[in-house]
């Protein structure tokens, strides 16, 4: 077995965060950040971007044993910055551009010299935009929350 232990990357939790943010971003938005990037690195794709499926599992009763509920389309890409880090992405949907850019940003974010700036500009913006979208959705749902009141019976 190949060892699949800790990556050299900053720390796994931090990396998981930005990978999730990149996966949930829209491909167009990632492309804008890429266009705006001052020093675009040269990179090559080691794998993909390739479109495939992930089998989505649910849990019986919501909390019980897992079962296969159906598949979703995903796109995977592994890139290497020339003379630099490797980036990985697997994102929902079939946008190859999305997977490629997410992998490139993942690689750049592992660079100690670039991480802080990229997190501040790209990741925090994407994260904020996602939170806003989600808050908007929740606010609309919240407006449909039932406020029960008891009718007082007059004697």
């Amino acid at each position: 077995m190949s060892p699949l232990d800790i990556l050299a990357a900053p720390d796994i939790e931090e990396r998981r965060q930005w990978m999730g943010t990149l996966a949930k971003a829209s491909p167009d938005r990632l492309d804008e950040f890429w266009q705006d990037l001052a020093e675009k690195p040269d990179y090559r794709c080691l794998k993909g971007p390739e479109i495939g499926l992930a089998m989505v599992r649910g849990r019986a009763g919501g909390t019980g044993a897992p079962f296969n509920m159906g598949e979703m389309s995903v796109t995977r890409c592994v890139v290497q910055i020339v003379d630099g880090q490797l980036g990985y992405a697997c994102v929902a949907g079939r946008s190859q551009r999305h997977a490629e850019l997410a992998a490139v940003f993942d690689a750049l974010l592992q660079d100690d010299d670039r991480r802080a700036a990229l997190k501040e500009t790209i990741i925090s913006s994407l994260d904020r935009e996602w939170r806003n979208r989600r808050a908007k959705r929740s606010a609309k749902a919240a407006s449909t929350k039932v406020e029960f009141f008891t009718m007082v019976r007059g004697d």
């Binding site: 495939g52 992930a54 089998m55 989505v56 599992r57 649910g58 849990r59 598949e71 995903v74 697997c90």
Partner: peptide, 21 residues
Amino acid sequence: RTTLPRLAVTEPIETSDMAVR
């Protein structure tokens, strides 16, 4: 769907953590 390779099996989704609408 039969034309696409399976690349992963997901972790079980946690509907308890759902952002409910």
